[in-house]
Design a protein around this nucleic acid. Structure first.
Lengths: 322, 322
DNA sequence: GTGAAAGCGCTAACAG
DNA sequence: CTGTTAGCGCTTTCAC
């Protein structure tokens, strides 16, 4: 339409040298008129860099979206764009989605990737820089960002012990995640530190999800010698404990204390507002972005960043009954 | 590596007929060993469909991430994947990002798109089905999902009037969004319905963002005859009103009542918890996904879906002082 | 049942 | 300064 070849249009659009001012102007006018934008797909297939950072998640739930908010705020002004991708997890395997997503996107669509809660060790031969948030395993291989899960969990349980609780259950997270193991470790440390025996019957797997936590929570609360407090491995499952407790006619915190982990916005206004261990999620997202950009520019410093947690006491914890 | 051509591999990977069982098996084994996944980019360039639904946002903030949660939950089991894209908005124009993002992704990367709060009328010649959430303009052209902004706003302001407020300010939204205009309309309707004159000095533009709302809020609250209540066009700016009020030594709700709009999780636990107009954000996301899938399958029914709002009274509203 | 070849929209190298 | 050509990784005819 501008009477030039596609090659020339490409040069104009990409500000390459060697185009006559008049031609450039004419092409730009047509581009404007047609509202032409180069296809991200075709461009990425040909070029080595796309200026797009990928955020790979299993699904969009409160934890990943909080990180996303932090990443999004931090990306502003860097010139990069964000592409958050949730591959299929329904039909196929729950595990390994991140490897699949990574090989589908990396090397072409995205220049680098932030992987949220990967379920397995990321192969280090990824064609692009990768940073993992809340990884499967400890700080080996892939650079990671996480928070001090053990200390956070310990403080949460110590808070319950300080209130006078002795029968404290733990609703665990996803066994395939380092964070879940460390939170259980913190739970055990707190009990042992106070000379309270760990009762295996009081430790259940909640999988970080309300649907997976439902049955174990009912098992926990439906027994005559039920615990007086539950430390849940994340807020989502803690909020589910709140709901089940209400169904069973248990008052929180009078009959049952509940503590969560994460401090997602949903925990601020649960009924009652949840006592929880705050992770600096926005900051974790922002730091993950910074790390991945550092990697991209070859100015990487630390390979692993662990941020502090802090206990937020709200209304779901109180001394045990009687 | 399997001793066959790329064409054969493609057939195996895509389950095409005409491949010997033995060959297929051998190729699959190598695929497994190598962890091969086809490049989404190359595949989308060649094929017409990708099984990916795009969600186009300006940035990842509470409103868009709440929709995303609803979309993500609804996509489960449909066989589609989700790709949320935030194009650059920093350097260039704040407006028109959706057209740019759409032409970069549509036709190749995504089979269909959900555009969140587009700032302009979407051209109807998009190569893929598009649904807009909270659009620039009313229900013409592009199918849309929104909520009953006018009624919601009217009820919010009537709540303030019922409490005895007469000097009620309105911190408006983004003038380029239909929702902002309708919320102001509801505000005016409520005042007029109660015989209260609309004071133009009490209407400011907050742009739905804390940073843009800051100056107007201070102008509003820093005057001797300041309003006794503020109806903010969304929760994010309402929460900012809460913060500015605190800075200025005004107690909420004793000295100042504040109402927001959206009911994002952040509003549940603000200090004090925010009275707000709830939009069914998760459901809006789910419905937008359903509509876009209907469009894709040619079974589209309604072109426009308007969901009801509901007033949630929390602790940021009370009768005016004196 | 398999592979060679074309082509998706674009960019980079090179020829004119 | 501009156009022709090749090729990014894949899928799809169409020969063999």
């Amino acid at each position: 339409m501008a009477g030039v070849s596609v090659a020339t249009v490409s040069k104009v659009v990409n500000n390459r040298y060697g185009v006559a001012a008049g031609t450039s102007e004419r092409v730009l006018a047509v581009v404007e008129e047609l509202g032409y934008e180069s296809s991200l797909v075709a461009r990425s297939l040909r070029r080595t860099s796309t200026n797009v950072i990928g955020v790979l998640v299993a699904e969009f739930e409160p934890y990943s979206t909080e990180l996303l908010k932090g990443i999004s705020a931090a990306v502003d002004g860097t010139g990069y764009e964000l592409l958050a991708y949730a591959g299929r997890t329904d039909g196929g395997a729950q595990t390994g989605w991140e490897r699949r997503s990574l090989s589908r996107l990396a090397g072409t669509l995205v220049d680098a990737a932030i992987v949220v809660t990967p379920t397995m060790v990321l192969s280090s031969d990824s064609p692009v820089p990768v940073v993992a948030v809340d990884p499967h395993t400890g700080p080996e291989g892939t650079p990671t960002v996480d928070s001090d899960n053990t200390t956070g969990a310990r403080e949460a349980v110590e808070h319950l012990i300080d209130l006078g609780h002795r029968r404290i259950a733990h609703l665990g997270g996803r066994p395939d995640l380092e964070s879940a193991r460390l939170r259980e470790l913190g739970y055990r440390q707190a009990l042992e530190g106070s000379g309270i025996a760990v009762d295996p019957l009081l430790i259940k797997v909640g999988g970080y999800r309300p649907d997976l936590a439902d049955a174990p929570v009912r098992t926990l609360l439906d027994r005559p010698d039920r615990p007086t407090a539950v430390f849940a491995a994340n807020d989502l499952s803690a909020i589910h404990v709140l709901q089940v407790a209400q169904e069973l006619g248990l008052r929180v915190p009078q009959d049952l204390s509940v503590v969560g982990f994460d401090n997602i916005p949903e925990s601020w206004g649960s009924a009652p507002p949840l006592t929880t261990v705050a992770q600096p999620l926005h900051r974790m997202g922002a730091e993950a972005l910074r790390m991945v950009l550092d990697l991209l520019e070859g100015t990487a410093r630390e390979r692993h960043l662990r941020l502090p947690t802090s206990l937020v006491v709200r209304a779901s914890t109180a001394p045990p009954p009687r």
